[in-house]
């Protein structure tokens, strides 16, 4: 039933990998106790650099409602510059979680009734050996910290599967590092 569905809305920029990140999280959720998993990018065209949204719904039962998320439980922001362009917390449920990639810590967002989780994913991912600006795997670590519904190991496995032999290690490390360094409110 839809009431028990966890709704996660992702905000990123075209080309940043929000879809891949959501997909990896969704796949791990599916294999770890959530038969109902539905993920969709915002309906319409995607343009490189322009803000994009991804809806991810996770449930213990089959999901029938495929409409885009309007009241998210969790909002994931891949890049704090999006805060200027989009009202990322629009419709967020009271007490909902806001996960942001930012070097500014909690100072990045001032709003009531939202639990904030921040990490400097950009920096941590670089530290893990990824090219600057690759944040989609790192942010998974932050989300896993803020919303511990899927074991971290499962997520790291899913990242490995997604990227294959050559690029897996740095991406897994980015998620692990971020998971460790995410600051929770």
């Amino acid at each position: 039933m839809h009431d028990e569905t966890i709704q996660i809305r992702w905000h990123g920029r075209g080309g940043q990998g929000a879809i891949t990140a959501a997909k990896i999280f969704a796949q791990a959720a599916f294999t770890h106790g959530f038969p109902g998993v539905v993920m969709a990018p915002s309906f319409g065209t995607e343009r490189r650099g322009a803000p994009v949204e991804v809806s991810l719904k996770i449930s213990k039962t089959k999901i029938n409602d495929l409409c885009p998320i309007e009241s998210p439980d969790v909002v994931v922001v891949l890049d704090d510059s999006i805060l200027r362009d989009a009202d990322v917390t629009a419709g967020i449920k009271p007490g909902g979680i806001l996960v942001i990639n930012t070097p500014k810590g909690r100072a990045v967002y001032r709003g009531a009734n939202v639990k904030l989780a921040t990490a400097d994913v950009t920096h941590l991912a670089e530290q893990a050996g990824l090219r600057r600006g690759i944040v989609n795997t790192g942010i998974i670590g932050a989300l896993a910290r803020a919303l511990p519904i899927v074991p971290l190991a499962a997520l790291l496995d899913a990242i490995g599967t997604e990227f294959g032999a050559q690029r897996a290690a740095a991406n897994i490390e980015a998620a692990r590092l971020t998971h460790e360094h995410t600051e929770m409110e």
């Binding site: 998993v37 539905v38 993920m39 969709a40 309906f43």
Partner: peptide, 12 residues
Amino acid sequence: YDGYYLSHTYMP
């Protein structure tokens, strides 16, 4: 099948 609702949506 529905464009976007099904075509671009991921599910198992």
